[in-house]
Design a binder for these strands. Structure first.
Lengths: 202, 202, 202, 202
DNA sequence: AATGAATGAGCTTTCATTCAT
DNA sequence: TATGAATGAAAGCTCATTCAT
């Protein structure tokens, strides 16, 4: 039993942080940020209230880190080389990946929309990668449409993103009236892809 | 000097209620429901905390009434005869009205999405016209596409509503990076309308 | 239709006051003084909150008047000539009347005990006939036993009054385990009476 | 420096709970339940308002626990083997113990009568040992008189309990007019005892 | 590193009382 | 005389955060 090295400590610490963030995201998404007390979060993570503050300085910091981490993952997936540029050959994959993330990270989206829709709260996120990440995403699309000769790039970005975000919102409150079958989701994705390539339908 | 008549009291009550609901909607939308304390709401309405409870039994009831009123207004506009049926000749106007409402009632939509995205809160709205109203809206579109020979009605509903709701969400967080010009909004609307009529592009 | 005379006005006022006091007593007894809001009391009396203050300056004054009135009625019944003296020939009737009142004015007793058992509240009643009335009652009995050669007057007063008040309390929370039949009540009364006359059983 | 053990925490909790319950009983008894705000109770216990809720979920729960604890102590003393049965040889001691408790636990009795006399409040105590304890007490006496050949057991129970409870009430509002000397109390106790054994005086 | 006792600010809500009409 | 809208103080309660151990 040799004593743990500093690296090992750091590793343990990091995995604890991740575990807390994961369980906290679940609670935030289902109860809402304001209704998720530190007690609840600690219990969900299986640790004590006090220890929470060993890992995060405040509830707000915890929230920010969760949002930043999620946003980073998304950008890493959609723009792996982080050059902020999409080439025509990458576009298809870009859209497909976005849809895949929408489906996989539902909890993150619920939280994201909740926070982003509260102007006063959103302000406190200024400068964090949560907002810059979103801007980056839009900006990548803008550049693509601009540099590929589309007549009205803003309209194209709006079309794409509204369909993506709209789908996100719809999936988030899956009404009994209309649960979306997987096959329809795939067709919907294709429809979006086609739209990008054939703006000449106008 | 003579005491107020019941009619006068009724008048006072009605106008106060409206005033409270209007100012509360603004506060809810900008601060978030949970961050909008009764104190804040009362101050925004220019009255005392205590008086709030003369008009609404609880903060939750106030929320519900605001949501129900907003939803009712929307349905009244989009489906004036309340028969739940859209004819082909009505469809265009239906979509246009929806967009108009999206633009006009931004505060309502912010609140609506915030609430609807919190599963625990949403449950408390079961049975209210907030949820049934949404279902009704979807159902009207479903019936339209079903009875007008569209190959995959769910896909059509999904396309339309995701574009509408997506636009809603995008407008709600009008980023500096991309504020949507009025002209683009109108083109976007036309694009949605065209999409409904020409699903043969598949 | 001749206009009402001042006397008639006074009469109407007085009967209103009585009505308010009667209904308030019922509410106080069943809900407790603190849980009986002015709103409840006004509704029970069939008038508006504001009008309550036309008849009573405060909730506390209303309480005091109810207690004083009740106490006065009791003393009027048990000591009609108000000379504070019981003769041997009057004693029987005195006790019997006390029991009769216990049975008839249960609501009053509930309220009385509730108030009297709260030292801080009781202090605010100092000087009112509620406290002096009780003292007067005890004092009458003391004088009787003193001037009729009883060995230990305090013991006699204690015996009598504890049986009376004990019965009062017991009747007030009529347990399912032991509801007191009328016949037993009468026998109990007789037993009390006998005890007064035959202290020689010691 | 080493963190507290679970045992230490348990110890802290237990002693704090007791401390709170003890001071709360005093305040309840002198101010009345409704007038005893959590602030007052916390101040009396020398702790913060918030901490009260670490130990009791609500003011009502605190009340219940105080009442239940008191009732349990009483039954433990009067019926140590908890068989619900009094033998003739035990009766004397049973009564004496009851009187001793009346004298020692005055604060408890004040609170008890206050609560029990409010029908609405009493209902919330249904099923708790506060009510069942009282029933048990009556029931023990009933069984005793029934199985020992007394002509009218209810009358006997009524006599005993009214004297006991009556004394209780009287002691609770120790009037200046008539404070009860210890010697009289003892004589009174003897009188009650004699009465049980010689119902043939009828 | 880890616990949960402890605090205090702020929340929702109630209610005696006042007041314009 | 009569109403109920309006106020403000104080109630019960929650919770992010701190701290002794």
């Amino acid at each position: 039993m040799s004593p743990r090295t500093p690296e090992q400590f750091e590793e343990i610490r990091e995995s604890r942080r991740e575990q807390i963030m994961e369980t906290a995201l679940k609670v935030f998404a289902s109860e809402g940020y304001a209704n998720s007390s530190i007690s609840k979060l600690a219990e969900a993570a299986g640790i004590s209230k006090g220890l929470m503050y060993n890992y995060f300085n405040s509830k707000e910091e915890l929230l920010k880190e969760i949002l930043e981490k999620g946003m980073k993952e998304i950008l890493n997936l959609t723009d792996p080389d982080r050059d902020g540029i999409i080439t025509p050959s990458e576009l298809d994959e870009f859209i497909r990946k976005t849809f895949r993330i929408m489906r996989r990270k539902q909890e993150f989206w619920i939280l994201y929309f909740n926070i982003i829709l509260q102007p006063k709260v959103r302000e406190s996120l200024k400068g964090t990668s949560v907002l810059t990440g979103t801007e980056e995403y839009f900006s990548m699309l803008m550049k693509y449409f601009e540099s590929n000769g589309f007549e009205d790039p803003v309209l194209e970005v709006l079309t794409i993103t509204s369909m993506i975000e709209g789908l996100g919102v719809l999936m988030l409150y899956a009404y009994p009236v209309m649960t979306i079958p997987e096959t329809v989701l795939l067709k919907f994705e294709e429809r979006v892809l086609k739209m990008i390539k054939q703006p000449e339908h106008e």
